[in-house]
Design a protein around this nucleic acid. Structure first.
Lengths: 208, 208
DNA sequence: TGTACATCAGTGAACGCGCGTTCACTGATGTAC
DNA sequence: TGTACATCAGTGAACGCGCGTTCACTGATGTAC
């Protein structure tokens, strides 16, 4: 008994997704706190009142966008941290993954960077919550690493946050370089790699 | 021949400052891209049209706020980096300074964190420019440190950026903890100190 | 010092416009029998 | 399978409101003589 969604539900989801997509596009050039409900419905081609069938407000839509942008990222982050290979390879792989993600979902990345400290409280909180989850997951993976022998919980979490923050900084730099010449993107890659390397050197000698 | 400003100029500056102050207060709960010119003038108690005597637009006012928030920070940052003492003392002093700054100018700090990736391009660019200056200045101070013997320019700038980003992350954490119990503020202090310590360990062993 | 004119920060009315929200509605889809 | 009723995603008109910008203005301050 497979669950075919029903025509009505399927159409509703399609409209909802169209609203999310349109909002994300509009948010490339403004903040959520200035995004108008009418702008969004106009871009989709539905009546303004249709908006209310899906979201209470643009803030509510913003929270849904956080889920869309970050919800699916957990497995990727886990595997990136726990990937095999020596330190240099792991760093290169992680940065490559970030670069690809920014290429594939630039609007999502921009949205998160922008609204992390943005003017809409529920959205800020949703992002903080997801990032805290990331940090916990990174910590769990770090704990399994042989390099973490002798580390206490607080220090592992501290390091996990450092990695998560660094990931966002790097993503944000790639974003700024999206339409820049290849040369600049390579400079970002290099700087990000060196920063991660410095952190991993610090990690290796933490218990000295 | 001291330069007393003249009554007219003095009054004009006073109004301009009142507009900046009112805007900063309003921006605690929204982003610049949704800040209205009428909101600001209403808060000050002048006619909406008076706004144009001082700024072309709210974006223009935002750029002025960047200057106000970051322009005066350069000497503080220079001295913090180049301060004497062992590594632990320097870290504690730097974090103490950040905490005090956030206490003294919370609205400025929030504004910078919010608009660094915000929806108003000229403001974003003004912030990036100031942060790039900070990084250059930190690099210059780092270069004078005996620990930097053997470091090349790229690595020094990479480290400088790491410090600047870390400073913003820490400031932002203190901001979130502003009205939280003292306990949480101490946790922020501890995590920030450990992260800086890890970076300084990495720095010490960079050339191994 | 006094006078006549210039400057210009702030005013207040007016404008057209798009906003968020309400409401009763329509008609395709879903469901019960 | 066919019929009668229920559901509900999307509509369209209407509302009151605050927005940014224009314009000609006022009256205190500044300047030239």
């Amino acid at each position: 008994m497979s669950h075919t969604l029903g025509i009505r539900q399927a159409q509703k989801q399609k409209t909802r997704q169209a609203l999310l997509d349109a909002a994300l596009t509009l948010l490339e050039e403004q903040s959520l706190s200035s995004l108008g409900l009418r702008e969004v419905t106009r871009a989709v081609g539905v009546a303004p009142t249709a908006f209310y069938r899906h979201f209470r407000s643009t803030a509510d839509l913003g929270v849904a966008l956080v889920e869309e942008a970050l919800g699916s990222l957990h497995p990727m982050i886990r595997t990136t941290v726990s990937t095999a290979g020596d330190s240099g390879e792991r760093i290169a792989r992680a940065i490559e993954l970030i670069a690809r993600h920014v290429d594939a979902y630039p609007a999502h990345v921009r949205f998160i960077a922008r609204e992390r400290h943005g003017g809409v409280q529920p959205v800020r909180e949703a992002i903080q919550a997801q990032l805290a989850r990331f940090a916990e997951e990174v910590k769990t993976e770090l704990a399994k690493d042989p390099e973490s022998v002798g580390w206490n919980d607080d220090d592992l979490l501290m390091l996990a946050h450092l990695y998560v923050d660094q990931m966002l900084i790097t993503a944000s730099l790639f974003l700024e370089a999206l339409e820049a010449p290849q040369e600049q993107r390579e400079r970002v890659t290099q700087v990000a790699a060196r920063q991660l390397r410095l952190i991993s050197v610090g990690r290796r000698h933490w218990l000295d």
